[in-house]
Design a protein around this nucleic acid. Structure first.
Lengths: 207, 207
DNA sequence: GCTGAAACCGACCGGACAGTCGGTAGGTGA
DNA sequence: TCACCTACCGACTGTCCGGTCGGTTTCAGC
């Protein structure tokens, strides 16, 4: 009994976690097909046989990894949904939480869109649902409140939430990330464009 | 001399065109790796050997197909760039031209983003450059004019053009496409959001 | 220190698939 | 009608890679 009464991870759990971490780094760097199981095993200091002792298949490993991460994100962004304040403030908080994530975790969000076509059936559905719960649905909730309270013009909250997500994805792209320097600049760009648009102010209103 | 002095396609050109057309349909429906060369050949009523008589490799076929299409789009959208009128009108024309394309041609635009990671080196660069010339750069040109003429607030034209592209991609997604019915509704949504934002009008200004 | 089970190893298997190659068909010019 | 060339055929090959399986190591409990 090496664990006594603590929650120290067992050797097995530690190995599984090492494999997931290795997989994360590799999947962020290359797409699903280009990451070979041998590469993951080597990066995690395990052999392929060892890897398959913990995960039933490559797909299972990938989905496990994503589900873990998406559940963390769901909890994180849930704070902004639960927060009080204006729609703009709450969207701002959610976006800031997102922008301030470590690079690797932030990049993981792209993977759903990038790799989703390589799956099908039940695993694909689990992935899509976890993603929607973590991001679009929570943003949609905030936007729905904004519409209800008259802060946003009436419209389809879901389409608006996808539009918002799309804008956030733009600012974390290579070029935009460089042009807009600080996190605050990213945040201001997204919020200004989403709430006020790109048109010049008609007259005499501060930006 | 079966051609006399006309420009009738030769048998060879007709076969190559049939192969490209078949490839287009299949690549729109599934991603690069999932489309097998045998499938393309069968759909084009040619054997694999025949296909490889016309194209050096699967990658070469894919890139040829995309380059053809992107060059057409570059010409099409060039009309909006050359047109006179406000920035909003010109962006509107470009977007309308895009939205009114046949489904398959419109969907092809997604493929660059979807499959770009599966290539590398020279072929990848050719693809990216053709895409940028066809879409983002032309939109950027119109947006730059808008900023210069005071119609748009000062900002980085390239980031704005990517934001615009992102919004257009949102409205052609499955759900948004259904919610917004007509092409006009798609167009209004994109232009309103991009120019004026999603916030409710402060007071007494028509939408 | 013995035992059984879980963790881990790594050579091997089998299917999938891009690309090849020796050959045939059909049309064209002399 | 003969020679030749391009278009086209389809069985085959080489390779890559996810997954397997018989074995070895590690370790907890007795």
């Amino acid at each position: 009994m090496s664990q006594h009464l603590t929650d120290l991870p067992t050797r097995s759990q530690a190995t599984a976690a090492r494999i997931v971490a290795a997989a994360r780094g590799l999947f962020v760097a290359s797409n699903y097909a280009d990451v070979k199981v041998d590469m993951i095993a080597r990066a995690a200091q395990v052999t392929k046989g060892g890897l398959y002792h913990h995960f039933a298949s490559k797909e299972n490993l990938y989905v496990s990894m994503m589900l873990d991460d998406l559940d963390n994100k769901r909890r994180l962004f849930g704070q902004a949904v639960a927060a009080t304040g204006s729609c703009r403030d709450r969207l701002g908080r959610l976006t800031r939480d997102f922008l301030e994530l470590p690079d690797e975790e932030r990049e993981l969000t792209r993977l759903v869109r990038r790799d989703i076509n390589t799956f099908s059936g039940a695993e694909r559905d689990r992935l899509v649902r976890a993603y929607q719960k973590a991001l679009p649905e929570q943003i949609e909730a905030i936007i729905s409140d904004g519409i209800r309270d008259g802060e946003l013009a009436p419209g389809d909250a879901r389409v608006l939430s996808w539009s918002f997500v799309a804008l956030v994805e733009v600012v974390i792209g290579r070029y935009a990330d460089r042009v807009l320097g600080s996190t605050d600049a990213h945040l201001d760009y997204v919020l200004d464009l989403f709430f006020n648009g790109a048109a010049a102010e008609p007259t005499g209103r501060t930006v």
